[in-house]
């Protein structure tokens, strides 16, 4: 018996999503009205039906695939870093969260020399603060500082 991996899980998830979209589309949003024609659920419901059946087909085909999807722990580190920036933004604000991320990433993971770290931080400061913040006038969230100030 072949082990269930992400190649099998994705079609199952897709079929579930299609089922939800199809059911909500037909029963909640409406499919067709004799007077006013297609309803909001018309187009997505048809698409959901297509997706449901192709997902079943993909699930069956997935057992024929010989190569397994391989995940690297470092890849998960980037995902964790992305989640970390989002969480840290609510506490220290978006710009400081980005700077802390770059600093920690380069010093701890990459063991980059301070000279390189400072150059990269300056480049990022130019892009984030100079271009986006000052020139284009984007107001970045300041996290808890916003409430304190």
């Amino acid at each position: 018996m072949k082990k269930i991996g992400s190649k099998q899980l994705i079609p199952v998830l897709m079929a579930a999503v299609a089922l939800v979209f199809g059911l909500v589309g037909v029963f909640q949003l409406g499919f067709w009205d004799a007077a006013s024609g297609p309803m909001p659920g018309f187009f997505p419901s048809i698409m959901a039906v297509v997706m449901f059946f192709t997902s079943i087909l993909a699930f069956a085909q997935s057992f024929k695939e010989t190569e397994k999807a391989e995940y690297n722990k470092f890849e998960l580190l980037v995902i964790a870093a992305g989640a970390g920036i989002i969480l840290a933004t609510f506490i220290i604000g978006l710009v400081p969260a980005c700077f802390v991320f770059v600093l920690l990433w380069l010093r701890i993971l990459e063991k980059a020399p301070w000279k390189d770290v400072i150059i990269i931080l300056l480049v990022i400061a130019f892009i984030v603060i100079g271009v986006f913040g000052m020139w284009l006038g984007i107001q970045f969230p300041m996290g808890l500082f916003e409430y304190i100030l």
Binding site: I86, V102, F140
Partner: peptide
């Protein structure tokens, strides 16, 4: 190895700037 943090920050800042909300991020 240096591009990874730079692009990550550009992705975060760019997505915030287009929506003016953390929802975008």
């Amino acid at each position: 190895k240096y591009m990874i943090p730079i692009i990550t920050v550009v992705c975060v800042v760019g997505s915030y700037s287009s929506s003016y909300s953390m929802y975008g991020v």
